[in-house]
Design a binder for these strands. Structure first.
Length: 293
DNA sequence: TGCCAGGGATTCT
DNA sequence: AGAATCCATGGC
């Protein structure tokens, strides 16, 4: 028996725009865009299940490959909802940005575009660390190598699908074991350190979500600075005000958008961002999007 | 080829 | 506190 779940995203919701973002790099290992559908391998303890996400009549359908307990179905449905940020009402964002000289012209170009999230905390922090100070293309390859080496996998309709490694597995590793993946010694140490924090229970999404200062909690972890913490805030925890102001992509997007011959200073960025209050993460995401039109 | 990449820790002044 | 320095490798 196959299991299915149907979700109704808050409108406007642009599924194809989600797929566009998720398909921006073919080395991405933990999901696959296959035509008009999205494939992902989920792990639930010892077992795994493939989710096939598609859009039908404005609703998002998730078809699972195996039978699930009701609780499991709920968990995976929540994952998908967070992943594509389906519950977000964009209207306040639209209203606020219409008064912004920088974002005003950009936002209407991508109607219904969601900030694509990364609901798994270990994956999100690891991805942020991997992406520090290297080009994205290379970062994807690092993620792919680590995933294919230590993540679960399953074949599905001719695709080999992978899940991001379990933190409990990575926590037991020595940095030297990760070095052959071309990950720097430092980053290997950082990621293993994060894996230990998560698998020990010291660090969890739930704790961060109920913390008064999740950024401070994260910055206390070695390898996690302000940029990484704010990135995780917006990409994983769902805070639309997460704001990685040091982000090079953000700087380049502002430079391009304003036709500047240099990157903006932090003072200038903060000045623009005064109009983004509460929506800094979304503003950043839309600026990233404007780089690749 | 050389600069730079979705930074951060460490070590200096 | 704030500025240099190193990390580590590949993309363009």
């Amino acid at each position: 028996m196959h299991m299915k779940s149907v979700l109704s995203p808050v409108q406007p919701f642009h599924f194809q725009e989600c797929l566009r973002f998720l398909n921006r790099n073919t080395d991405e290992p933990v999901w696959k865009v296959d035509g008009d559908r999205l494939l992902k391998l989920f792990t639930l303890g010892e077992k795994s299940v493939v989710g096939e996400i598609s859009e039908e009549d404005g609703a998002v359908h998730i078809q699972f490959s195996d039978t699930l307990e009701e609780e499991e179905l709920g968990l995976l449905t929540t994952y998908a909802s967070e992943w594509l940020d389906m519950e977000r009402d964009l209207q306040p964002f639209y209203d606020q940005m219409s008064a912004c000289p920088l974002l005003g012209p950009i936002v209407p170009q991508y109607p219904g575009m969601r900030l694509i999230r990364m609901p798994d905390l270990f994956e999100a922090i690891s991805w942020a660390i991997l992406g520090q100070q290297i080009n994205l293309t290379f970062a994807y390859r690092l993620k792919q190598r680590i995933t294919q080496e230590w993540g679960a996998s399953r074949e599905y309709e001719g695709h080999i699908l992978y899940a991001f490694p379990d933190p409990a597995v990575i926590a037991e590793m020595e940095p030297e074991v990760m070095r052959p993946m071309q990950v720097s010694q430092r980053k290997a140490e950082y990621i293993i350190g994060v894996a230990k924090e998560i698998s020990s229970g010291n660090l969890s999404k739930q704790k961060l979500l109920s913390s008064e200062n999740p950024v401070a909690d994260m910055v206390a972890i070695r390898g996690v600075g302000k940029w990484t913490a704010e990135y995780v805030l917006m990409k994983c925890l769902g805070y639309t005000n997460g704001f990685p102001i040091q982000d090079v992509g953000l700087h380049n997007a502002i430079k391009k958008q304003l036709g500047m011959d240099r990157k903006p200073t932090y003072e200038e960025i903060e000045e623009y961002a005064k109009l983004w209050t509460g929506w800094e993460g979304y503003a950043t995401f839309y600026l990233w999007r404007s780089l690749s039109s």
